[in-house]
Simulated scan of single mutants.
Amino acid sequence: MTEEPQTLILVGFMGAGKTTVGREIARQHQSQFLDLDLAIEQKAGMTIPEIFKSEGEAHFRQLEEAVVKESVTFPGVVATGGGVVENEKNRQTLKDSDAVVIYLHGNLEGTIGRLLADGQRPLLQKESTISFFKRWQKRDPLYQEVADYVVETVGKTPARIAAEIVALFSGQADDLTLTTLRSQIDALDRQIFDTIAERIGVVRAVAAYKQKVNLAVRQPERMVSMKANLKADYRQNDNITDDLIDALMATLLEYSMAREEEDIQKGQL
């Protein structure tokens, strides 16, 4: 169990869910909530898109800097803007404070999807995909720099993420580091199953193409060759054994063949 902080600050890329998760933490923990973007809008007397349009990003960052200084002693949960860490003074303010800073870490694909659905993010509207990706790469190590802990968000509802964070500061938590590691395992498990689903989809597409051009759908010799290559590639990795490769590839083959058989019965192959 970790001592309960007076101020809990959430950082992360735009669209990471900081505001939604922050409100949920405040609800579950019966504490106050502060959205820095709303605080900036109140200080400026205009919305953030209006600030960007009329005053520019530099002016927005100045307003943000002032609000960040006020937020580190806020008695509750604080959700920051995605670019707060690009200002070195903000990073120093966060690191020098007694607040606990948690980085909500997601993935780029999910973030872009949420932002496109939102349609209210000025940076996303004016940037190309490449420049947006570069901004992501630039900010990630800065979030890591200021964060006391990282919580993975992939595949989790805001309520689930909030519950994990609340548990860190209650008697129900084993240890903050252990909870963070478990969060990372959860996210990795979902990535594994997403990859498996994608792999089976590609396998089915390959089988359909082979059927179309009159090639043998099943080629067991290729699986044997693949396993041999994998074993050679992971020979020096103590976490990946030959038995694990054999078991996983056998399972993947079994499920892929089952999906192919379903397609055949449906007349899709």
Rank of each mutant, 00 (worst) to 15 (best):
R135K: 12
I161H: 08
T2R: 10
R222M: 13
E24R: 13
N229G: 12
L188F: 11
I51F: 06
L244S: 06
T157I: 02
L178S: 12
N87L: 09
Y209T: 13
A167N: 14
A79Y: 05
L252D: 13
I240Y: 11
A187H: 07
T7Q: 04
R114E: 02
F169N: 02
I112N: 02
D35V: 10
V84W: 04
D186L: 13
N107E: 13
V202G: 01
Y209I: 11
M257K: 10
T73C: 13
T47K: 14
R160W: 14
L36F: 03
A167K: 14
R259I: 00
V154P: 00
P5M: 06
G83C: 07
T153L: 03
D140E: 12
K134E: 15
G267E: 01
Q219L: 14
K95N: 01
V85H: 08
D238W: 05
Q62G: 09
A39H: 09
L176A: 14
S256K: 05
F193W: 15
R91Q: 12
H105A: 15
V68M: 14
K43T: 11
E55T: 00
F169D: 04
S256C: 08
E4I: 10
G171H: 12
G83P: 05
V68N: 07
G83R: 06
L94Y: 12
I40N: 07
D186V: 10
G17P: 01
V100K: 14
G267Q: 05
D242G: 01
Y103R: 08
T73D: 15
F13G: 04
E65F: 01
T153W: 02
A99R: 01
G22L: 03
V11G: 07
E261I: 07
D175K: 01
G267A: 02
V166F: 05
T241C: 03
M46G: 00
V11A: 04
F169L: 04
A79S: 14
A147P: 01
Q125C: 01
I51S: 03
F52I: 06
A208C: 07
L108T: 00
K138N: 11
V11C: 03
A232S: 10
L188I: 13
V21T: 11
K18A: 06
R235S: 14
Y234L: 10
A162R: 02
V146P: 03
N90R: 08
D189Q: 15
A159Q: 15
